[in-house]
Design a protein around this nucleic acid. Structure first.
Length: 219
DNA sequence: TAGGCCATCTGGTCCT
DNA sequence: AGGACCAGATGGCCTA
């Protein structure tokens, strides 16, 4: 798949893919997501990252809107809807007070959204994906979906580690008179025998694992 | 030009 | 009453 195709694919179906991607496929997804999707969107000849960087754009927008948006265009009680004037909660206040209250509410909402975006930035910073000046940062929805899959992947890895530790502990307690690790008849799951090298590993039903000697040992 | 993403404004609702 | 949260509407920017 070319870069362009990858971008188109991810742009069109990426959200669905992100929603259903297995956790153990997260890393490759995250890498391809960052490198192909946003890399393609970005383009080598595109403007420098700072031009797009939402923080710079946001902040400029914030400052301009703080000073011009609200103060000049956004709210004019004399032009607002009749329901707002007649039934709204601002009824009974002088136009100047209504405007002041509206500006205050707008500012609060702006602040709230900025806090939300800061939190999303914090989330992006801990998600392992392609961080690069030439790579556009994850969208909000992509951040959330990728974070979810990353958590699932971590949970799966943790479970795998626990199984391995239990297996090792059990083997060690009996290993003095038993075969070396990997050939022990003690197996962590009742009713299962040590799989032959050709059998599918039953310790890791999802497939093979680098943590599992049976999966990595080749005859 | 269409579509995606985003910031902002706005009114409604709920909570303290 | 005031603040937090939410969702719809709107318009701007960017890319394919």
């Amino acid at each position: 798949m070319s870069v362009g195709e990858g971008a188109a694919h991810l742009a069109g179906q990426g959200m669905a893919d992100l929603k259903s991607v297995p956790a153990d496929a997260y890393m490759s997804l995250a890498q391809s997501y960052g490198q192909t999707f946003y890399g393609a969107l970005r383009g080598a000849e595109g403007p420098p990252a700072l031009d797009f960087h939402p923080s710079s754009r946001d902040r400029s927008g914030e400052s301009s809107d703080d000073q011009t948006g609200d103060d000049e265009d956004s709210f004019d009680p004399t032009k607002s809807s009749s329901s707002y004037d007649n039934e709204g909660k601002l009824t009974g206040k002088k136009p100047k007070e209504q405007r002041s209250l509206r500006l205050s509410i707008n500012a609060r909402e702006r602040r709230r959204m900025h806090d939300l975006n800061d939190a999303l930035d914090g989330l992006r910073s801990v998600i392992p994906y392609a961080h690069s000046p030439s790579v556009r940062k994850l969208s909000k929805i992509a951040t959330l979906l990728l974070a979810k899959n990353y958590i699932l992947m971590q949970a799966q890895a943790l479970e795998e580690m626990r199984r391995l530790v239990a297996y090792l502990n059990q083997g060690q307690s009996l290993s003095s008179s038993l075969a070396p690790f990997g050939q022990s008849s003690v197996y962590p799951y009742p009713g299962t025998n040590v799989p032959s090298s050709s059998d599918k590993c039953t310790a890791f039903p999802a497939g093979t694992s680098n943590l599992c000697k049976h999966c990595t040992d080749k005859p």
